[in-house]
Design a binder for these strands. Structure first.
Lengths: 151, 151
DNA sequence: TACATAACCTAGTATTTTAGTCAAGTATTT
DNA sequence: AAATACTTGACTAAAATACTAGGTTATGTA
């Protein structure tokens, strides 16, 4: 699998929006501060998230991003897929040409692992995460920190 | 997670030994040919596998490597861990210092994914893989190919 | 209308990781 | 002694990652 900061940041940022979308839209500068992610890097990620129709943008003052779907319709798998292009652990991308033009000895093993990971990430949505106590606590801590920063 | 050719090659090579250990020991040159892996690269991997006591080496002519444990006692997780050092998807390596010195918003999510992957890879041994029909078929094909190469 | 705000876009780049190679060993069997 | 096979460590090209810089465009507000 390819599990990089790109995927981690994307999930974190999407979760941040889900937690703060009471105000209509959330701007990237706030997410950047709350989550300690570079603003310009976030912009790149959101260009992909928008292309995959997971968010909608509102331009101009007071604008920002909001979820394009309900939080319980956005799975973690979709988010990671949108920015990382793939969550594949095989070398051949499932094409079975890992040894010459045939399957390598462990091809099916990696395919199984793929399925296992996919099942987990597909079965988990943003709304599932929001409900969790640890997420609530961390989010509250971040909100307080941002307020102190601005005062 | 870090799932690279290192881990994939290691599992493939270990499986190759498990499939051919009737002769006492298997030398790396044969594995390299059967599995299309660079010999010197394999040497590096086996130095780690030996250090982690998954294989034993037999030096001198006719030597090679053999499993240090029964095939049903060697899990895929152990093999990957031996060469890749970790199958972790968090950024903080589980240390909870992903945001300053505190947990980031998605820390627990990645820990859960870690557990999920670990459960799968820990529950699967070399002997499980040997029993599979697709592994048998690919292995037979590789043996025939090696014989033709040598004649 | 001007201006501030925030999304949007295109390059470029430093750093890290990966996937190896190369060379010079050491140990063991025949 | 000679052949075979494992051992070790340093080195490297190429790719991927994680950014930064510097702009443009759209839109709401004074």
């Amino acid at each position: 699998m390819k599990m990089t900061t790109k995927g981690r940041y994307a999930v974190t940022a999407m979760l941040d929006i889900a937690l703060h979308d009471s105000k209509g839209s959330v701007n990237l500068a706030d997410i950047a501060k709350r989550q300690d992610i570079s603003l310009t890097y976030l912009e790149q990620l959101f260009s992909k998230l928008k292309r995959h129709k997971l968010v909608e943008s509102v331009r101009g003052p007071g604008g920002g991003y909001r979820l394009a779907l309900a939080a319980d319709a956005i799975t973690i798998a979709k988010i990671i897929y949108s920015v990382d292009e793939s969550i594949d652990v095989t070398r051949c991308k499932g094409k079975q040409n890992c040894q010459g033009n045939l399957r390598c000895l462990t091809h099916d093993l990696w395919m199984e692992l793929n399925m296992n990971i996919s099942r987990f990430l597909n079965g988990l949505t943003l709304s599932d995460l929001i409900k969790r106590n640890n997420v609530k606590h961390v989010s509250e801590r971040q909100d307080v920190a941002l307020l102190q920063l601005q005062s």
